[in-house]
Amino acid sequence: MDVFMKGLSKAKEGVVAAAEKTKQGVAEAAGKTKEGVLYVGSKTKEGVVHGVATVAEKTKEQVTNVGGAVVTGVTAVAQKTVEGAGSIAAATGFVKKDQLGKNEEGAPQEGILEDMPVDPDNEAYEMPSEEGYQDYEPEA
Rank of each mutant, 00 (worst) to 15 (best):
G7M: 05
V63D: 01
K34H: 04
E104D: 14
F94E: 02
K96T: 11
A124E: 08
Y136H: 10
D135S: 04
T44N: 01
E139I: 11
V82A: 11
G132P: 04
L8W: 12
A17R: 07
G68P: 04
E83L: 05
G25F: 14
Y125C: 06
S9T: 02
A30L: 14
D121R: 03
G67D: 01
K23M: 14
V77Q: 02
A29V: 11
A140P: 07
I112H: 08
V71G: 02
T54E: 02
I88A: 03
V95G: 12
Q24L: 10
Y125Q: 12
V48M: 15
E46C: 09
P138G: 14
E28M: 07
V55A: 06
A27Q: 15
G47C: 08
P138K: 05
P108V: 06
T64S: 09
Q134P: 10
V16Y: 13
L100E: 07
P138T: 08
G67F: 12
Q109Y: 10
V63F: 07
A56F: 07
I88Y: 12
Q134D: 08
H50N: 07
V37Q: 00
G73L: 12
K60T: 04
Y136S: 14
E139R: 09
T64D: 04
Q62K: 13
K6M: 06
M127D: 05
N122Q: 08
E13F: 08
G25E: 08
T72F: 14
T64H: 12
G41S: 12
A90K: 05
Q79F: 05
Q79N: 10
V71Q: 04
K34M: 03
N122A: 04
E61C: 06
V49A: 11
I88G: 04
G31F: 14
T75E: 03
K6V: 02
Q99A: 10
A11S: 02
D121V: 04
G47K: 09
T81P: 02
G36H: 15
Q134H: 04
Y39K: 06
Q24C: 02
K23L: 14
K102W: 12
Q62N: 09
E20T: 10
E126C: 14
E105N: 10
D98A: 05
A91P: 03
D2N: 15
K12D: 00
E130P: 10
K43F: 12
L8Y: 02
G51T: 12
E105H: 01
N65Y: 09
A76N: 11
V74L: 15
G25A: 15
P128A: 09
K12N: 01
T92S: 11
T81E: 02
K80M: 12
A78E: 02
F4I: 08
A140G: 14
D121W: 05
S42T: 04
Y39I: 09
K102V: 13
T92Y: 07
D121E: 10
E28R: 12
G25S: 12
K21E: 00
E13A: 14
K96H: 08
E35R: 09
K97H: 13
L100W: 01
Y39F: 15
T59L: 06
A78C: 10
T22A: 13
P108T: 11
Q62V: 03
E83F: 13
G51Q: 09
T54D: 01
L113R: 08
Y133M: 07
T64Y: 11
E13M: 14
A124L: 04
K97Y: 02
T33K: 00
G68Y: 11
K96F: 13
K12V: 15
K32D: 00
V95D: 07
V52C: 13
E137K: 03
A89C: 11
P138Q: 04
L8T: 00
G47H: 13
Q134G: 14
T44Q: 01
A27E: 02
T72S: 09
S129K: 04
G31V: 04
A53V: 13
E57P: 02
S87K: 03
A53P: 01
A19Y: 15
T81A: 12
T59V: 12
I88Q: 03
T64C: 11
G84C: 12
A19K: 03
I112M: 05
G7R: 15
Y39Q: 03
Y39H: 06
K80N: 03
V70H: 01
E104M: 15
G47E: 03
V63Q: 01
A76F: 08
E57C: 03
D98K: 07
P128V: 03
V74A: 08
G47A: 15
A90C: 13
A85D: 03
G14K: 08
E110S: 06
Y133W: 11
K12R: 14
P120D: 05
T64A: 13
E123P: 08
D115V: 08
V71I: 15
D121P: 08
E126F: 04
V52P: 01
D98H: 13
E105G: 08
E137I: 04
S9Y: 08
E83Q: 10
S87I: 10
G111K: 12
V63R: 03
V118C: 12
K58T: 07
K12P: 00
V48T: 02
P128G: 06
K6N: 09
A27S: 05
V118Y: 12
N103L: 06
K6T: 03
A19D: 00
V66D: 01
Q99K: 03
H50P: 01
L113C: 03
E35Y: 14
K96N: 14
T59H: 01
T75C: 11
A30E: 00
V55Q: 01
V49N: 02
G31P: 00
P128Y: 03
Y39P: 00
D135F: 07
V48P: 00
D2C: 04
V74R: 01
Y125N: 08
K43M: 15
V3D: 01
A78W: 14
E110M: 08
V48R: 01
K45I: 11
F94G: 04
A85W: 14
A85K: 02
D98I: 03
E139P: 05
V66Y: 12
N103E: 07
G47V: 13
G14D: 02
G51L: 11
V82I: 06
M1C: 00
V40M: 12
Q99Y: 12
A30N: 00
G41I: 06
A17H: 05
I88P: 03
G51A: 14
V37L: 15
A107M: 08
F4S: 00
T81K: 02
H50E: 07
Y133H: 11
T64I: 14
E20W: 07
A19W: 15
A17S: 05
D119N: 05
K58N: 05
A27G: 05
T92L: 11
T75F: 14
K21T: 05
T22E: 00
K10H: 03
Y136N: 03
T81V: 15
P117C: 09
P128Q: 06
D2Y: 06
V15G: 00
G67E: 02
Q79P: 02
G7H: 06
T44C: 15
S129M: 12
T64P: 03
G41C: 10
G25W: 07
L113D: 09
Y39E: 02
A56I: 15
N65C: 12
F4Y: 15
V40D: 00
E131T: 10
G101N: 02
G51N: 06
E130I: 06
S9P: 00
E104F: 12
V49K: 13
P120H: 08
P108A: 05
A85M: 13
D135C: 07
E130G: 09
D115H: 10
V49I: 15
N122D: 10
A85E: 02
T44P: 01
P120L: 08
A89T: 07
A76S: 07
E57F: 08
E20D: 06
T54L: 15
S42P: 01
E123N: 10
E105I: 01
S87H: 13
N65P: 01
F94P: 03
E114M: 03
A78R: 09
G68W: 15
T44I: 15
E110T: 14
A78N: 01
G14A: 15
P117S: 04
G67L: 11
K60P: 01
V49W: 12
E28C: 05
Q99H: 12
D115N: 05
K58C: 08
E123Y: 10
V82R: 04
E126W: 04
Y133G: 09
V52F: 03
N122G: 02
A56H: 08
G51D: 01
